[in-house]
Design a binder for these strands. Structure first.
Lengths: 217, 217
DNA sequence: CTTACTATGTGAAACATTTAACGACTTCTC
DNA sequence: GAGAAGTCGTTAAATGTTTCACATAGTAAG
């Protein structure tokens, strides 16, 4: 009973949540069918890429018709495990951390921030976005079943915190600090580096002028 | 006098700011030389990839020696236009926007948030992270020379704001809203979608177990 | 039923990126 | 100064991703 088909390319996997969200929108708008072309315009991914992506999961659509929204939705729900919620811990309740806490992922998502931690005693005990803030030194006791952490601490604390998280059983970290943390091979880290993103955008702006007609991810 | 060599691959261009920051660190630590191997360990990019990346700009290193930090730094400073500051506008001073304003990009960066805008009158007139907050309806007058905007507004406002920004002359947008905005071909948009990033991480966690020895970007 | 239309799923080509491997040159050590 | 060790720059191979283009099968309508 493995839901896994053959391995999906990573590039495809990264687009799945995006597809899911949009299909979800369509569904709540009461739309019954959708073509790869419509989807393409909405999510800004080439329609052939969408068809290819979907095809890794088998034939989800009907020729001459498109995709049935209801079916697509229930398919992705299963595939993305939307039914079981993944509990997440957030480390560092600064501005960025607060932004996450207020984001309310659970709405369209299978992820929920269960608990947040901060080193600043003034923040401990408060509640942000419905999530309790605990002191960072207590966390070893409070994240026993948590495998995913969002790291929004100052960058000099990043490596140390990562090690403590891993020690406590975390195996996936979304790292928003500029520090590139070093982790054992069984731990997955995704870096999102705001300064780098902004600089890269500026670099593209200056060195890769868009000609009319050239489009963009 | 074109600083442009032949076109650099996009994947390389996205790594340049990362390299720059790290080389900058080395320099302020007083380090004189660095090898692609050391750099690789620090930024978590394969050393062959680093050598390849650097080689697009010509021969920056010396065989048997490595790279001279001073030289590398001054080279990247030029290449990434670190000398001229790019002015940026920030739209939407919520938690995420505030996080950006407090980030202080100028420190290691050639980008500076010059002005921020918000629709909430209570925020207008305040200063966040040293940046004045203006009312959003005034912005057409105040961003005449600004080409880059960070969009951290609620997602239902994203498309409309994007259009106003473009109308006012913006040609690059860093979009943090979940909305995939539609823009004319001469405008560059980079999407950073926090919920998608988190979901993708969870998907990888569940479906792509890391074997020992497998490493990760 | 037949014809016109539509849109999928995919083979094959094109394109992009990463990685391995190694020759050439430098530095280091004795 | 000679040999060992180190490290770049690059050629070539491998891998990954996107896109084209079209046969095929379904829909829609008279």
């Amino acid at each position: 009973m493995d839901t896994e088909p053959t391995k999906i390319p990573q590039a495809t996997a990264k687009r799945l949540p995006l597809y899911y969200r949009f299909i979800n929108n369509l569904h709540s708008q009461g739309k019954l069918r959708v073509s790869s072309k419509e989807l393409s315009e909405a999510v800004k991914v080439d329609s052939a890429t969408i068809r290819r992506d979907f095809s890794y999961f088998g034939a989800l659509g009907k020729k001459g018709y498109g995709y049935n929204v209801e079916y697509l939705l229930s398919f992705f729900r299963k595939t993305l495990d939307q039914d079981e919620t993944t509990e997440v811990a957030l480390i560092g309740v600064g501005n960025l951390g607060t932004a996450f806490l207020n984001y309310n992922f659970t709405k369209n998502n299978n992820t929920r921030i269960q608990v947040a931690f901060d080193a600043d005693k003034r923040r401990v005990g408060t509640e942000v976005g419905g999530v309790k803030v605990e002191h960072i030194d207590d966390f070893e006791n409070k994240i026993e079943n948590i495998k995913v952490a969002i790291l929004t601490v100052p960058s000099n604390a990043a490596q140390g915190m990562a090690e403590r998280l891993i020690e406590a059983g975390v195996t996936a970290i979304l790292n928003f600090t500029p520090a590139r943390i070093t982790v054992p091979p069984h731990v997955r880290v995704h870096h999102i580096d705001l300064a780098v993103e902004l600089q890269a955008l500026v670099y593209f702006l200056k060195h890769y002028p868009l000609e009319d007609g050239e489009e963009e991810e």
